[in-house]
């Protein structure tokens, strides 16, 4: 019989339609591990606007998320492995919702525990930057002009590049000779 490792009772990845309780998730992630000195988390929420695209407050009425069942889970597991190999992280947790969400709802949760804050802050941001550019999710938003697929942003690729990793998501190759 092996001794359970800290937070072994918490799954690392959940893809779900249901909402999540950030307080309960954070408590569960660090439960039983007295070596934890830092917990950093990120919660992404659905906005009702895109300032840059002249879509004002209230113009995004709903957001629908599609994913690639099976690949989504394994891709995020691999991202967590990469995060734990790179930073001194004790436990990590990713929750991503799918289906139809309303403005103001929680959409994604990323949390890490570490002995010290430096690794915790960096690991959380690294994991989120990976998720934005490598995990197979797609957003479709409902606007007054109808539903439309959200375009990937070059700035998300740039965020990942700060870590020395390159995504080429927003400008994914169309074939030989293309950027």
């Amino acid at each position: 019989m092996s001794i359970p490792s800290p937070s072994a009772h918490v799954p690392r990845v959940s893809i779900q339609t249901a909402d999540f309780d950030t307080g309960a998730e954070l408590a569960a992630l660090r439960a039983g591990d007295l070596g934890v000195g830092a917990v950093v988390s990120f919660v992404g929420t659905v906005r009702d606007r895109h300032e840059a695209e002249a879509l004002g407050p209230g113009s995004i009425q709903a957001m629908e998320l599609e994913h690639y069942p099976g690949m989504t889970e394994s891709a995020i597991e691999a991202m967590i492995d990469a995060t734990m190999a790179r930073f001194r992280v004790r436990a990590a947790r990713v929750i991503h919702r799918v289906g139809v969400l309303q403005p103001g709802e929680q959409i994604v949760f990323v949390a890490v525990t570490s002995s010290h804050r430096g690794d915790a802050f960096q690991a959380c941001e690294f994991l989120m930057d990976y998720l934005k550019t490598q995990a197979p999710f797609w957003k479709k938003e409902t606007t007054p002009e109808g539903a439309r697929w959200v375009d990937a942003r070059v700035s998300d690729d740039a965020a990942l590049a700060r870590w020395g990793d390159f995504a080429s998501n927003a400008v994914a190759s169309g074939g030989p000779g293309q950027a």
Binding site: P136, F137, W138, D151, A152
Partner: peptide, 10 residues
């Protein structure tokens, strides 16, 4: 083999 647009989760 799957084909899809650039991803936009998170």
């Amino acid at each position: 083999l799957a084909f899809f647009p650039p991803v936009t989760g998170g």
